[in-house]
Simulated assay, not measured.
Amino acid sequence: MSNPSPLVSIIIPCYNQAEYLEETVLSALASDYSPLEIIIINDGSTDGSEEIAKNLTSKHELVSYIHQKNQGVEIARNTGIKAASGTYILPLDGDDLIATNYISEAVKVLENNPQVKVVYCEAMKFGPKGKKYWKLKPFDINALARDNMIFVSALYRRKDWEKIGGYAEDYNLGRADWEFWINMLKDGGEVVQLPFIGFYYRLTGGINSLRKRTGSDEAKRKRIAYLNAKYPEFFERELNGPLRFQRTWSKPYNTLLKFFGKL
């Protein structure tokens, strides 16, 4: 008798995404993988998100709903994962979409390869101006020290989320997925990118797209300072010193400073 398939928990934080939430949830429900649970976390929305979420829970037994005051997407994700029962976690923002085979193919990799911590796929950006292939850089731990190449909607084990203490709730500087992947992968673990488009990242041009953008130089400096303070050993190992504002030049600059005894 074969072992039952592991439960996958899809965690959907939602902030004023009423226009897209149902489409996002339906794309998750259309997955060819089972068993699934889908948890919507309403992060204090002021639009019709709550009504739509409650309607979805009444129609679909796989969908559940949590409301919290507005605290940010990192806390919303943690809230959802704490309430989840799945072996594997898939975060999915309240306006993005997944392909039907994404979860099933990712779970196969995770089940067959204990050394793999993260599985993602190829991706497409879409919005009012059409679709565009999202060309992601190949994963490399040294490259991760300089920039992120894994979008937030990758699958991973709940136990790995627990080990690192979840998403950093004091990190509201943008690009939280980058910080999360550094934390999860800094001490090892393989990453696999599936060779097909399984994730669709929506560009709306509204407030939620603004929340996804990198932001100003000031925000970038704060983000780099946060990462350097939290992961000094990681950056020392990968970049021979701290992450710099000109991230691509971090390692050669640090190496030069050390050569002249300035670092």
Rank of each mutant, 00 (worst) to 15 (best):
G205Q: 07
L256W: 12
L56Q: 03
S31F: 04
A229Q: 14
E233S: 14
I164P: 01
E233L: 14
I197S: 00
Y156R: 09
L136F: 07
K212M: 14
K220P: 03
S34H: 14
K220A: 11
M1R: 12
K125Q: 13
K186I: 05
K59T: 08
G166M: 08
A229L: 08
V107I: 09
A30M: 02
Y253W: 15
F196G: 01
L62C: 12
I150K: 05
R213L: 13
T79W: 00
K131G: 02
A83Q: 08
N112Q: 15
T24L: 05
N208Y: 04
A28K: 04
G72A: 04
S85M: 13
P252H: 10
L97P: 01
L203W: 09
L185Y: 04
P195L: 00
E105D: 09
L256H: 05
S27F: 01
N113Y: 03
Y102N: 03
K251M: 09
A143E: 13
S209V: 03
D140S: 11
I52M: 00
S104M: 05
L256N: 05
G205I: 05
F126L: 06
E22R: 15
P252Q: 10
E218C: 01
Y201N: 15
D96L: 03
L203P: 01
A28Y: 01
R213A: 15
V118I: 10
F259K: 13
V152E: 12
K258P: 02
L185N: 01
F180H: 10
T248H: 15
N78M: 02
L26E: 10
D95F: 02
I103M: 03
E236N: 13
V25I: 11
G206T: 09
E22I: 05
I89V: 10
Y231C: 07
E233Q: 13
N228M: 07
F139N: 01
E37M: 04
Y167D: 04
H60Y: 11
S64Y: 02
I41P: 11
T204D: 11
Q246F: 15
N142Y: 12
A176P: 01
N70S: 14
S5G: 10
F235D: 00
N208E: 15
A28D: 00
N254Y: 04
N112F: 08
S27M: 06
Q246C: 13
Y15N: 04
L92C: 02
L97A: 05
I41T: 07
T214P: 14
W181F: 15
G188D: 04
A99F: 06
